[in-house]
């Protein structure tokens, strides 16, 4: 019954993310996968702009490029050109990847660039104080949708993994969540598959993570989980959307 658990080397230093933020879990899973696959010293992580910026060194003890808001799809593409022997992983929030960076995100997938993209979806632009994102749910109150999001004039929550999965060549697309230990264990497998894909030279992978944002949702972790179960996860179905390896 007992297991051993230790702090991954890549995350020995504490980070400054908010209490209860899903990013902390996703980064830990990524660190675990990289160390298990023997790639923790053979990976260049490209960070978008947003809460993920908290994971610049010293919080992440690996190699990190901080790129401009929205452009990680392009930067990670260039990293892989420069060092095809290393893993090139882009890590972005939903504001970064699906709003300002929609063109670069979709185009890297469209070209089947041999990179791995991890996006964390929390229904708002968190770092800048909780503005509406394209993933904000209908009627959700944010600081730029104070009367609740009107999807008639702002669009329905965007499902980028579904669009990416529609590109024929793309290898692997999955959506997971951090809502419970069981889901976190499934999410780790998705990240592991995506990373292994790249190691084996199989083309583009994307893993989207539905995550809580206690600070901007103004909810404790239990209420965050309840709202995610009620509203977000039914809209954003979990699982592998595409797996060209089967």
């Amino acid at each position: 019954m007992a297991v051993t658990k230790s702090v991954p080397r890549l995350l020995e230093n504490p980070h400054t993310l908010c209490p209860g933020c899903g990013h902390g879990i996703v980064f830990r899973l990524l660190a675990e996968v990289l160390e298990e696959e023997g790639y923790d010293q053979k990976t260049i992580l490209t960070l978008g702009v947003g809460c993920c910026c908290n994971m610049n060194p010293p919080a992440w003890k690996g190699d990190v490029i901080q790129t401009a808001h929205g452009r990680a799809g392009a930067t990670a593409t260039g990293v892989k050109v420069g060092r095809p022997d290393l893993l090139s992983i882009a890590y972005q929030g939903d504001g970064d990847a699906y709003v300002i960076g929609l063109a670069e995100t979709l185009n890297a997938a469209y070209r089947n660039e041999p990179i791995t993209v991890i996006t964390v979806l929390n229904n708002n632009f968190a770092m800048t104080g909780g503005q509406m994102s394209w993933t904000t749910m209908p009627g959700q109150v944010t600081v730029t949708s104070p009367n609740g999001r009107d999807c008639d004039i702002t669009g329905l929550p965007i499902k980028v993994p579904e669009i990416v999965a529609s590109f024929e060549n793309v290898n692997y697309v999955a959506r997971g969540t951090t809502i419970s230990a069981a889901e976190i264990n499934k999410l780790k497998k998705y990240i592991q598959t995506a990373v292994r894909n790249q190691i084996e030279g199989k083309g583009y992978s994307m893993v989207e993570v539905v995550s809580p944002c206690p600070t901007n949702w103004r909810k404790g972790v239990a209420d965050c989980a309840a709202w995610m179960n009620e509203e977000v996860i039914p809209y954003y179905p979990l699982g592998e959307l595409k797996n060209n390896n089967k």
Binding site: I44, T46, I65, T67, A68, R71, A72, G73, A74, T75, A76, T77, G78, V79, K80, V81, G82, R83, L86, S88, A103, E104, N107
Partner: peptide, 19 residues
Amino acid sequence: AENEMAACYMLQGAGSTGM
């Protein structure tokens, strides 16, 4: 590249590795 910005960020990626 898909646009001139993306081209530059590809350079950031590759240039960072010394290419």
